[in-house]
Design a protein around this nucleic acid. Structure first.
Length: 268
DNA sequence: ATGGTAGCCCTGCTA
């Protein structure tokens, strides 16, 4: 079972790159973030042609938007936190579905903008709401994967130069504590678990100043799994090729690269 | 050269 997560920064602008990548990387489940796509405009046909079922939660279409593509089954989909649809503040940052025996969430944590701002407070509150959701509605003894753009670099080695981040979001202690509190519930950072001794690998690079080619990136796109999936972890990689412009490409790449995690298949 | 880029949409906002 191959699970991927990718912040595509507009699905409409990136559709050909996404379908090309799917055909090449062949994930069984692919979580997307920042689709910026209204539900009625979601390109279902482009994905069904590749064998994927789609779940999508598009909000207002201008910002945010999350989706799950699956060719391993797609059931019990629910948008937002439990309770009313849109209980994530109608911001379209959370979508959950059952795919091949795994409860998969595609999530897009608020950026936070600046430490101390109201947006930063909202980021912390959103993470606390997610933790509450796990405690009240989920079972850490069951197969579950939280996949998405967490907008948090878990450790100092998950950014290119920690000295550049003094006082900045993504590395501040309070948001890292919130991430740790998710892990304490019963989750493991899959890529870090499989690659304990290396820095990164980064999954995001700023569009500006040639950051990608200078290696100025961060590891903020994560796959967090419960223990039953930790025991099935096989390998993981970040597809940096998908972050490159490409010689013939008409459209720009996303500023994020896909994160891919392979699980050992269960034998019946 | 106090910068840079990308995507959305009303020329600014968000990342």
């Amino acid at each position: 079972m191959r699970i991927a997560t990718w912040n595509v920064n507009s699905l409409r602008a990136r559709l050909e790159r996404v379908t090309t990548w799917l055909a090449d990387a062949q994930p069984d489940v692919c979580c997307l973030q920042e689709t910026k796509c209204d539900d009625e405009a979601f390109p279902v046909m482009a994905f069904s042609a590749l064998g994927y079922e789609c779940a999508f939660h598009g909000g207002n279409g201008r910002w945010n938007g999350v989706a799950i593509l699956s060719r391993a089954g797609l059931e019990d989909e629910r948008a937002g936190f439990s309770g009313a649809l849109g209980a994530d503040g109608d911001e379209a940052r959370l979508l959950t579905a059952r795919c091949g025996g795994i409860l998969v969430s595609s999530l897009y944590v608020p950026n936070g903008r600046a430490v101390g701002s109201e947006h930063y407070a909202a980021k912390l509150a959103w993470l606390q709401r997610l933790r509450q959701e796990l405690v009240s509605s989920c079972d850490a003894a069951q197969p579950l994967a939280l996949c998405g753009d967490f907008n948090i670099a878990p450790e100092d080695r998950d950014v290119w130069d920690i000295n550049q981040f003094a006082g900045a979001t993504h590395v501040s202690a309070p948001e890292r504590r919130e991430l740790q509190s998710l892990l304490d519930w019963g989750l493991v950072d899959a890529v870090r678990r499989l690659r304990p001794d290396e820095d990164g690998p980064f999954s995001w690079w700023d569009y500006r100043a040639g950051a990608f080619h200078k290696g100025w990136g961060m590891r903020i796109d994560l796959v967090l799994v419960t223990r039953p999936l930790e025991s099935r972890l096989q390998s993981a990689y970040v597809d940096r090729e998908a972050r490159k412009k490409g010689i013939k490409a008409v459209t720009q790449p996303s500023d994020h690269a896909p994160v891919v995690v392979d699980l050992v298949d269960l034998v019946d």
